[in-house]
């Protein structure tokens, strides 16, 4: 029998991360997830327990290196290793360049980019020790287009591209697989905030070549593919999950 895989999802109590946590827990993997929102994290553990499924939750401030390192050490102690890291933690506050203040810029970079750096920095030694590991970053098409909430958000998401390529350039031959999923126009709370009315949403749909908003299953399917053996020759790539929005419209 195949060993149970240990999957760590950072930012797993909401949106894309949460859907993936539910999906893997349903399939019986060892799922560990973190989130800043303790209530939401515990609620998800309870929700899964009601269905007889299990997941382990840690409250996590991704901008705190010691906190990140501590959680990853605990996970390794408890589960032996981390096979897959899915990094889904992120924030956005829509601001024009004119409105944007330095604290908002800094906070967005800290959570979305520095938080990612900490997580990857903490798991790489462990993955190298086991001569293998899979990292999947939830990025954003905003990095490519410069749209989606402002200069701060685009920069914070853009940073993940170079980070991924630097990891790939250094550790591909040592068994580290790393790719990035770049969702756009997926039905999440983040999208609801950017397009609050039905009218604004309908306008958006008209700009998407496939004429629909993506669902959380679309992103979970993509993550599952990149986490599977079937995609083992895919390395350092950006997989847009966007209904054709980025390059066709």
């Amino acid at each position: 029998m195949e060993r149970k895989k240990a999957i760590l999802v950072i930012g797993g109590a909401a949106g894309i991360g949460k859907d993936y946590v539910k999906n893997r827990a349903a399939r019986g993997d060892s799922v560990i997830f973190t989130d800043l929102n303790k209530e939401a994290g515990e609620a998800l553990v309870n929700e899964l327990a009601l269905k007889g499924k299990e997941a382990t939750f840690f409250q996590h401030d991704v901008t705190d290196w010691e906190n990140t390192k501590g959680i990853i050490n605990k996970v390794i102690k408890q589960f032996g290793r981390i096979d897959t890291l899915v990094h889904s933690a992120g924030i956005t506050v829509s601001k024009s360049f004119e409105e944007l203040t330095f604290p908002t810029w800094k906070k967005t970079i800290s959570v979305n980019l520095t938080g990612l750096f900490y997580a990857v920095k903490a798991v790489i030694p462990e993955m190298l020790h086991h001569k293998g590991g899979n990292i999947i970053i939830i990025g954003s098409g905003s990095a490519i287009t410069g749209t989606g909430g402002g200069v701060h958000y685009a920069a914070s998401k853009g940073g993940a591209f170079g980070l991924m390529r630097a990891i790939a350039s250094k550790y591909s031959h040592l068994g580290i697989k790393i790719n990035l999923v770049a969702p756009r126009v997926i039905q999440t709370e983040m999208l609801d905030r950017l397009y609050p009315t039905e009218e604004s949403l309908e306008k958006l749909v008209q700009k998407i070549p496939v004429r629909k908003i993506g669902t959380l299953s679309d992103t979970t399917n993509a993550i599952n593919f990149l986490a599977s053996k079937e995609s083992d020759f895919i390395q350092g790539q950006v997989l847009l999950i966007d209904g054709g929005r980025t390059f066709l419209s």
Partner: peptide, 8 residues
Amino acid sequence: SALESMNK
């Protein structure tokens, strides 16, 4: 890469 996305 962050700078390039900021640029865009």
